[in-house]
């Protein structure tokens, strides 16, 4: 378990095009860093770089001062990632999805799966095919999948997509609980108003660069 994430001079180029340029961030245990910015600002790319899902061109992502190289690292198993899409299998039931990912994380724990399904309001639908779920239900299941292995670093990419007001409330409550538990959380959104009532630090991104640090509490 690590206690801080440091992003140093992070850069991502595709061909000659710079997608992320010289980004520096530091997020400590219990912090919620919110990355805002318009479409195409590079929010998703930055999050995927931090998760190690894409290769960086330059710079470092340090987890407790250790360079994070995802392909040869068990550190990736301490990361929870909820993307635009919920990253689940629509051909399986909600329970089967969590059971499969539980196996991959070697935490085959029926009660953990069931309590997470209850937490996100899907216990009743646990044996239903995900294919029959609405967008919001899939996103709830995605949240349960993200938290299944009790990750240290949790990354959310536009997590409010498809969530109804009840789901948004559930999400805020979950984020608050995770803050209290000392988890490191990084979230991208167009609209930080969704996070009202939460202690956040916010950085604004545009054209791949941090243009403003709005609240310097991190």
């Amino acid at each position: 378990m690590f206690r801080k994430v440091v992003v140093q001079n992070l850069e991502k180029k595709i061909g000659n095009r710079i997608i992320i340029s010289d980004v520096n961030l530091k997020v400590n245990s219990g912090d919620l860093l919110v990355i805002t910015g318009p479409n195409g600002a590079g929010k998703t790319t930055l999050l995927r770089l931090i998760a190690g899902l894409i290769r960086k061109s330059n710079g470092e992502v340090l987890l407790d001062d250790k360079s994070y190289i995802p392909a040869i690292s068990d550190l990736s198993r301490q990361i929870g990632y909820l993307g635009h899409r919920p990253m689940i299998y629509t051909g399986l039931t909600a329970y089967e999805n969590l059971s499969f990912f539980g196996k991959m994380y070697q935490i085959e724990n029926k009660s953990r799966i069931e309590s997470l399904l209850s937490k996100v309001g899907l216990y009743f639908y646990r044996h239903h095919l995900v294919d029959t779920f609405s967008r919001g239900m899939m996103q709830r299941l995605g949240l349960a999948r993200t938290l299944l292995h009790d990750p240290t670093l949790i990354l959310y990419d536009e997590p409010f997509t498809g969530l109804d007001p009840e789901g948004q409330g559930l999400f805020r409550t979950t984020v608050r609980e995770l803050q209290e538990a000392g988890k490191i959380q990084i979230l991208t959104t167009h609209n930080p108003d969704y996070l009202q009532g939460l202690l956040i630090c916010e950085v604004k991104l545009n054209l791949g660069q941090v243009i403003e640090v709005i609240q310097r509490s991190c």
Binding site: A71, S76, R77, Y81, I88, T90, G91, H149
Partner: peptide
């Protein structure tokens, strides 16, 4: 393709830690 359907491949990669 079905791994790409809901981006499950990314979650699978993080869970396995290798390809």
């Amino acid at each position: 393709d079905k791994e790409r359907d809901q981006d499950a491949l990314d979650a699978l990669l993080l869970a396995t830690g290798e390809w």
